[in-house]
Structure formats: C-alpha cells, structure tokens
Design a protein around this nucleic acid. Structure first.
Lengths: 97, 97
DNA sequence: TTGACAGGCAAGTGGTAGCTTGCATATAAT
DNA sequence: ATTATATGCAAGCTACCACTTGCCTGTCAA
C-alpha cells in the first residue's frame, strides 16, 4: 500500500493517529487496550498490528525498538501533501500579483 | 460512502479533483475526455460518473444542471478537517501561553 | 418526429482490503 | 530452565469496492 491517502481512509487508522496525537510513543499493547477501552473497538492484536504496518509504510508513524517493546511515534509531515495539492490558493494560478 | 477520507483514497478521484482545480465546472464528458487523454486512464463513462457521485456525497464537489449538461465544481472545504485534526499544533495542548 | 448527444439506473463480476486463526520468535521475570 | 510477556509471520475467509455491461430518460438539432 504505502499510500498516505489510503492509509487514512480506514477509520481505525485515523483513531490510531488520534491516540498517538494524544499520547505519543505507545506500544502495540497500549494501543490495543486504548482502542478497546476508550473507543469501544473490538479488534485482535494482529489486526491493529497490520494497521500500524500500513501507517508506517505510509510514513505516518515511525517505530523504535526498546528491548522487547516497540514504540510508535506520530509523523504528520506526509499529510502536508494534501494542503500542497488542493488547499493552497496560488498553485500555478499566479495568485500573487 | 459520504466520507471525505475514503473519497480521496482512490487515485482516480484525486486526479478528478486535480482536473477541477485546473479547470472548474467541467461536464462528465469533458472529464472523461481529459482523464483519457491527459492522464492515460481507461475508464468507462459510468465508472467516472460513480466516482463523481462519491466525491459529491463527500462534499468535495457540487453540481449544477444546465439544460442537458451537468457541471461539476470543486469544494475544498471538507479537506480542512485534516488540518483541524492533526496539523494544528495547539489542539487541546494549550500551545499558547 | 427522428436522431444524436449528455447523463442516469441497476444488476453482475473480479480483485483485494481487512480481519481472524494458528504458530513462531525474542526478551524479561521467576 | 521454565514461564510469561510483547511482537512477528503467514495462510485463509469474507465482504465490499471498482468497474463493466445493458438499458433507460431527458434535451437539443435536423
């Protein structure tokens, strides 16, 4: 996949991004617990792991291995392409002058 | 569908938004021609029509009937939610002060 | 009125994303 | 060494999206 747009297409993945916005550097198990508790989601650990893979291959999260833990960090830079693409007034339109 | 995120998940639909950014108010047939010519896409008219339906139900385009023509206009407002959600530094983080 | 043009509706099909199940690996604790 | 914890890998299943095909409606020109 590795595509930013498809990565944020799934509601679960957007919720994961929200969670990391609120508390960065969570492990897979932490995310599992929070998605279950706070967001009433009923997913297996593997399902969430696969979502994290998608997010990582899209560049929306980075991971760091800490012994047996894997910490996940949010990266919002890839989302900028959306602004660059459609939300900038002057883009080939010569808006200034 | 009616979801902004799923609407921009498909590459073809993003190309349609690009086309409308470049030239707003196109008809279905105009879009078909341009997607075929400029973007080397090989899709039937119905396929593109369905994509336009998705974009409209997501609020990314609006349409106006002009006799037997249907004109399509770009609406970028729904994309702002992405900025509000993840690209704003101070959102519950009390960044100022 | 007849034909061409622009668009709409709906059923059918193939491919793939998302999820589960089962097993495997690695690190830490006892 | 054994067990618990945290994660990884891979095959299989299901549901749905994207696309096509076929036919229908509405508008304009001759």
């Amino acid at each position: 996949m590795s595509d930013v747009f498809e990565a944020i297409a799934a509601p679960v993945r957007r919720t994961i991004l929200d969670e990391l916005t609120e508390r960065d550097g969570q492990t897979l198990f932490e995310l599992c617990a929070r998605l279950t508790m706070k967001h009433q989601l009923c997913l297996t650990r593997q399902a969430i792991s696969q979502h994290l893979d998608v997010l990582e291959s899209a560049g929306l999260i980075t991971t760091i291995r800490k012994s047996r833990y894997k910490l996940h960090y949010l990266q919002v830079e890839p989302l900028q392409v959306i602004i660059e693409r459609w939300l900038r007034p002057g883009k080939g339109k010569r808006s200034h002058k």
